[in-house]
């Protein structure tokens, strides 16, 4: 591309009224105050307390006793910590991208203007309102080895289906499969992004190339990258915190053979089975640091692939 001596972008943009901006900022802070107070009380302070408890021996009853890095050392040599971390990483690495791709596909379908699009959108969102526990139980029933409708159907087709929930080689994949349902929020976020694409920009793309995938790859996807970023970060955070489905299916031991033993399940076990709050807090701290580093890395790369209409981050 030719480089010409264009003036810097800021030079052509109008200068804002700084004084008015300050007044607006004050009002903005006031309006956000209830949320800031809640955030401080229920997120920031507990976070700091967690960092502290992670370096103590604390069993709910009695005062915490300072032990320094002992809890982290105990974690380092705990096979359950490593097994659950491995399971959780595999779970996240597969379920997050697959989930994003399916959600995007659904959003693209739901974005088509038809007489029934409102109806379809409601139908696709409804399952999200179902509690995760109930959803997991339904899937357990569907996937029961002999009497479950899924296996009956697969056997009728001449296939040899696995014991979805009890085969150690299949259980983690079953959990990943279950995590793909429901896709309500991800789909909704993508749908919002798609509907935000100006109609004439989309039409200009139709005039430039007759191929649909051209428009998807070069126009649609770049314009919804803020939504991809959001879904990616939230998806990673949620996948590292997968708990409900894991504990309903695998209990606190990750049945079968620790195949479904997830990080949060081990954390829960340490805190509320063994009342080892110090160890649980150390696990929470490790998770926090890992998620923070991953998120920061994603945001750093985001500058090169996320397009913001209002300006760069």
């Amino acid at each position: 591309m030719p480089i010409t001596s264009a003036p810097p972008e800021a030079a052509v943009l109008p200068r804002r009224n700084r004084k008015a901006e300050r007044g607006e900022a004050r009002a903005g802070v006031l309006f956000a105050l209830p949320w800031i107070i809640g955030m401080t009380l229920f997120v920031a302070i507990p976070l700091v307390v967690t960092f502290y408890i992670a370096q103590t021996k604390f069993q709910i009853i009695g005062a915490p006793k300072w032990v320094g890095m002992q809890n982290y050392e105990a974690l380092w040599s705990d096979p359950a910590f490593w097994k659950s971390a491995q399971n959780t990483l595999i779970f996240g690495a597969i379920s997050v991208p697959v989930k994003l791709i399916i959600a995007l596909g659904l959003a693209l379908l739901l974005n088509r203007a038809t007489a029934l699009s409102g109806f379809y959108r409601t139908i696709f969102y409804l399952p999200f309102l179902m509690p995760a526990v109930a959803g997991s139980v339904v899937f357990m029933l569907l996937l029961t080895p002999n009497a479950g409708p899924v296996n009956i159907a697969l056997e009728a087709m001449g296939l040899n289906p696995p014991d979805w929930l009890l085969d150690p080689n299949a259980a983690l994949w079953t959990l990943i499969l279950l995590s793909l349902w429901p896709l309500g929020v991800e789909t909704l976020v993508f749908l919002g992004g798609l509907q935000n694409i100006p109609k004439d920009v989309s039409e200009a793309a139709d005039l430039d190339s007759p191929k649909r995938w051209h428009k998807l790859v070069w126009i649609t996807l770049p314009l919804i990258t803020p939504m991809v970023l959001f879904n990616l970060v939230i998806g990673i955070i949620y996948s590292f915190q997968v708990f409900t489905q894991a504990i309903v299916i695998g209990g606190t031991t990750g049945t079968p053979a620790e195949a479904t033993l997830m990080y949060m399940v081990v954390l829960y076990r340490a805190a509320f089975r063994y009342f080892n709050m110090g160890l649980a807090a150390a696990m929470a701290t490790v998770l926090f640091v890992v998620v923070l580093i991953l998120t920061l890395l994603i945001f750093k790369t985001a500058r090169s692939w996320v397009h913001y209409e209002g300006g760069e981050i």
Partner: peptide
């Protein structure tokens, strides 16, 4: 080829 009222340039 069409020129639109709101320009319809690809913003990214």
């Amino acid at each position: 080829a069409m020129v639109f009222q709101n320009y319809a340039l690809y913003p990214h």
